[in-house]
Design a protein around this nucleic acid. Structure first.
Lengths: 118, 118
DNA sequence: TCCATAATTCATGAATAATTGAATTATAAG
DNA sequence: CTTATAATTCAATTATTCATGAATTATGGA
């Protein structure tokens, strides 16, 4: 991920409505949510929601797919992971004071097959 | 970390100059960098830099300390870690598709004492 | 075809953020 | 005390973003 991509993604997520939308979509993976349902759930007009979804989409954080009259939006988890890695990359180049505690905090909730506590 | 704190932090980091400043400060931990040196390094006027540093400071991402005529700025790594955890928290509540690959990507560069590969 | 639903685009105004010259504050040296 | 350096604050302008009523596009059913 390039710096400009990260800036676009951070900018997209730094707005109240869009952060709420993205967090909702993460929770609704992998089904996704229709644009109109998002507007109702968050409580904003449909046209406003459409603009916000366009910003998230342009930043690569969500994907969309037309399904009959609705357009289903989904969080792009791999893109989100790329953003997190971009943000953490600097600190990992040579020092562990951020990443080590972060891993320690994350590991209990997401056990993986190749990592184990001793 | 509350949603509003996360929004402030994301908003602070979603601007080109401020993201560059923060990344530089992360690399310069724990020494920190004087405000004037940051302005020169990034290539913006001192008063502009001062405003940007104020935004980062208000978001809790940097701390400052006067040292003679200079003011030394430092990245607040624990605050940054809180932001990363906030962003990752939703996905970890019940699913691992983001966190597990993220941990897998981070662990090789930041080995910790209580986690080991098997 | 005609109508209803879902979503987006357009146009406008309001609010917010960014930039920068000038002035101000804080510190240290002569 | 005066001067120089470092940083911030102020003020004014410019640029960007946000919100929303109205219009437009796309789809499916009667």
């Amino acid at each position: 991920m390039e710096t400009n991509d990260a800036l676009d993604a951070l900018s997209a997520l730094s707005q109240e409505t869009r952060l709420a939308v993205f967090r909702l979509l993460v929770r609704r993976e992998p089904d996704g949510v229709a644009a109109g349902d998002l507007a109702k759930a968050i409580g904003v007009p449909a046209n406003s929601m459409s603009v916000h979804l366009g910003v998230l989409s342009h930043a690569g954080l969500v994907t969309s797919e037309r399904r009959s009259r609705s357009v289903i939006y989904r969080a792009d988890l791999s893109r989100f992971r790329e953003l997190m890695l971009f943000m953490l990359k600097d600190c990992c180049n040579g020092r562990a004071e951020i990443c080590a505690p972060l891993i320690a905090d994350l590991t209990p909730c997401c056990p993986t097959e190749d990592v184990v506590h001793v």
